[in-house]
Design a protein around this nucleic acid. Structure first.
Lengths: 242, 242
DNA sequence: GCAAAAGTGTTGTGTCTACACCCATGT
DNA sequence: ACATGGGTGTAGACACAACACTTTTGC
């Protein structure tokens, strides 16, 4: 099942092994990290690889990657999952033809999932040798996250339920790779109605200081908050009559 | 070859038919149109479908879609091709399990490729019944083009080598679905260094009028021209010492 | 000269960064 | 009091849309 008998294929027809992979990212200790497992058998024995595995006959690719990730991290911790790209170079694996669809997965920084012995988190800025084309896939994941931080509410998937602006600033700085001003971060996200205050405050730290107000994301699903403004008419805003 | 013997699969392993599809867009008669062919046999006999076909054993997905498109349009007319998404719902085809990777292809408006008898262009604003999930794929293609017109030079793939600002304005208006001011279009694209004047002018039209200057795209490959500006430090511009 | 089409000058607006200043808490 | 960190006010830079105005052609 799931495989057509050869006798049927009057047209040119080819079935390849299809795998799903994921770039799972989390901010840990003020750095963006990716989940990798160490291969013990060839090809690329000893190298690190992205988690994933074969697609089953009756599942979608998204279901497949969730299923394979369940062995690495608790799926309930995956706050966001989206498709990145599909890799199909016949030489991407030295042993067999394999098409792979890559996903980007995000885990909130307050989660600390238990991982198997062969699996661990690696700083995206200092990756070890990666198997297959996994290095370039990881790069794609970083760039997708970076871009979407600018024009969507995707940071909800990296943040805990409630947080101060300072804490959120650390997440953005780690994910973007450069410093971010808390002043402007707050203004941009409040103006776009991405954040809302919970009303509560966080207790002051060890050395005193004003306690920060707590915020939460208004939506915990991906939303585009800054549609591309260029070349769009600005007028005809549906407003009240004068 | 390209198919593993069953005896080998100790792990869960499944091979699905993999197809490539393309949303090929062109601006024709001031409207954005998509290339469709009419199915003559089930499933969806009589419905219109996106061009594409099976993936061969030794080719990439990009090679595959170029090969299948060659039967519909001259591949040399394809000015741009990029991957959109991979569809994997087991129920997307009523007859067999098929995974499909969709592409977006763009054809310059001056090209007029000969197409087979079962194939024709359709206004994206008034599509007929489409087979499978091709309607939603077409929608994805439109949206990808729309978004990229705002922050990349992707219009090069819709435009001829040389054109006036007015002609370019028509392309943008058709692809975006709303009117665009030639004044601002010119300024945005010149400021970003996307366009350059050729020096030549187009002869005046039937009713006189000042002849328009001709421009060309500085690059005929996709380039991001308006990196997301938000949350990025604006300072430290590499400049000369005072 | 006059209509038609192209192109420039200018103004206003909205969104962002940067920086100064004020506020709240612990010791 | 004073150090420490949180939050607001405001100014300046920039990119854009809108519109008036000038330029260049055909008739």
């Amino acid at each position: 099942m799931g495989r057509k008998p050869d006798g049927n294929s009057s047209d040119r027809h080819f079935t390849a092994g299809h795998t799903s992979l994921a770039v799972v990212l989390q901010v840990r200790r003020a750095a963006l990290q990716v989940l990798l497992w160490r291969r013990s058998s060839p090809p690329f024995a000893g190298a690190w690889a992205l988690p994933g595995g074969y697609l089953d006959a009756h599942e979608t690719l998204e279901h497949s990657i969730r299923r394979h990730l369940a062995a690495k991290v608790d799926v309930r911790e995956l706050a966001h999952l989206e498709q990145l790209e599909t890799l199909s170079d016949p030489r991407r694996s030295p042993t067999a033809r394999e098409v792979a669809t890559a996903f980007l997965g995000l885990v909130p920084c307050n989660a600390d999932p238990a991982v198997p012995a062969d699996t661990s988190w690696h700083d995206v800025g200092a990756l070890p040798m990666l198997a297959f084309d996994h290095a370039s896939i990881t790069q794609s994941g970083r760039e997708r996250l970076r871009a979407k931080l600018s024009y969507t509410n995707i940071a909800f998937a990296l943040a805990p339920d409630e947080f101060t602006i300072s804490e959120l600033r650390e997440l953005y700085a780690a994910a973007l790779g450069h410093d971010v001003s808390p002043t402007n971060l707050q203004r941009v996200l409040l103006r776009r109605d991405v954040l809302e205050p919970t009303g509560a405050r966080r207790a002051s730290g060890r050395a005193g200081g004003r306690p920060g107000a707590l915020f939460r994301f208004r939506e915990r699903r991906l939303q585009v908050t800054d549609e591309f403004a260029v070349l769009r008419p600005r007028g005809r805003v549906a407003g009240s009559a004068p």
